[in-house]
Design a protein around this nucleic acid. Structure first.
Lengths: 261, 261
DNA sequence: TAATAGATGTCGGGT
DNA sequence: ACCCGACGTCTATTA
């Protein structure tokens, strides 16, 4: 750990920020501050004790004592500015970003702790259970959706967007499949959009199937009102499908079996 | 600040976590760790240096050196468990949550810093620029959309859903306005559905306007192909509209004028 | 409690 | 650099 300073003076904190803000260091500042934001929206946050984190890619987070999400943030900062406001006895830390034009201004009244560190983390997050895993499972085992289904194409491009799975059923009718982990009304519209597009392209009636691990009554109504269908897929089957696939490839398993219990 | 410990032993860290995890304290732990998650999906994150934060409402964040978002998290934790894995020389911190059933397991190999604090933050975030603020701005100043526009109704209910703004133009034609901060293809279909619905109700041609702060060429094409219109709204105008409204009510201004420059 | 829509959404992948 | 869709989305609001 590069530096740890408790209850630093503004001057010292200013120097630390100026030294490390624009470099690949992680800064953590605990203190009493207020925050203003202006850009895509505008916000004001009065004084409170918070944790400010500047990450190595310049991401900025202002975390309060509660909630998953930060109170204020900046996913990417282009320019930093630190000033001591003698009149108000505040340390002012500004982060600017272009595209979109945005500004976060943090005014510290008191600083409790500053740490500087260069975190080393080359590990990639391996995750299973995403929508794309359902796509793969369908390609691997089309009977998940329907017996006799033949997958024609995945991620088929159309003027209306990308169709998740394009297939034909036992009667050789075209089937548009939209896969969603968390379907909502928009998903229905999205599927309709694709079906409309394909019907135009092939000038005939096309089936549209929404494939999802869950569904609500209202969305189902909305779907069926449009002549579209719903097929449920078990997320556990998808993960199992992936893992059975992976078990055959010794040593490539993404997950530690000891974690299973 | 309740406690700050550098390079603590596992035993000491375990005691600190056990003492504070379930109480309204903020814990920050910097160290080398790996993380497993299982619940709605499943993930594995190999060893790397990270910042683990447990907030006062039990939210758990595992932040890597980059990005706005945490690598792993738990918005709410119901049960904590800390164990020292002597065999692997790891400190294992488990957080469980029911509804949905989820588990995050953090395995520390090295701990650099532990801090315990009780952050006091009673301030509410005041924010302007949400979609509803655009609605209000239109009601206040309909010329934002079009000269001579008269707002008939906001949040008008139809069988197809709620119409953001229902209005009439200078020629007394009905206008359906859909407001979106981030419009997409589905927004177009949504608007079209409202227009179809209203055309049925009033049996006549109805105008449909998508009001948004931004637009892409493709979505614009898709919109205009359907005879619908796009009007751009400046978020700054929306915010200004709110503030001019508020200035008339002395002392209620949400924002510090000194920030304006 | 569940469902529904919004977010300064963010992020990754493709063009 | 922009466009587009997914997200362990999260979160607030409402039935």
């Amino acid at each position: 750990m590069e530096r740890i300073v408790q209850n630093p003076e503004f001057e010292e904190t200013k120097q630390i920020i100026e030294e490390y803000a624009s470099r690949k260091y992680t800064l953590q500042i605990n203190g009493l501050c207020s925050v203003n934001y202006r850009g895509r929206a505008k916000s004001k946050l009065d004084r409170g004790e918070r944790i400010v984190i500047k990450k190595q890619d310049s991401a900025l987070l202002v975390h309060g004592p509660e909630n998953y999400q930060p109170k204020n943030w900046q996913p990417e900062v282009d320019r930093w500015n630190v000033q001591i406001d003698e009149e108000n006895e505040e340390l002012v830390m500004e982060s600017k970003r272009t595209s979109p034009e945005e500004l976060v201004e943090i005014r510290f009244e008191r600083i409790d702790l500053v740490t500087v560190d260069q975190l080393v983390d080359k590990s990639e997050l391996k995750i299973r259970g995403h929508e794309v895993d359902i796509h793969e499972a369908v390609e691997e085992e089309p009977e998940i959706v329907e017996d006799g289904l033949k997958v024609v194409e995945r991620e088929k491009e159309t003027p209306a967007g990308f169709i998740d799975v394009f297939a034909r059923d036992t009667e050789d009718k075209y089937v548009v499949i939209e896969v969603k982990r968390n379907p909502d009304y928009n998903t229905v519209l999205q599927l309709q959009r694709y079906v409309d597009e394909i019907e135009e392209e092939f000038s005939g009636k096309i089936r549209g199937i929404l494939l999802a691990p869950k569904m609500t009554d209202k969305i189902l109504d909305y779907l069926e009102d449009r002549g579209l269908e719903f097929v449920e897929v078990e997320m556990e089957d998808v993960i199992a499908s992936y893992e059975s696939l992976n078990q055959s490839q010794k040593g490539l398993s993404d997950f530690d079996p000891s974690y299973e219990t």
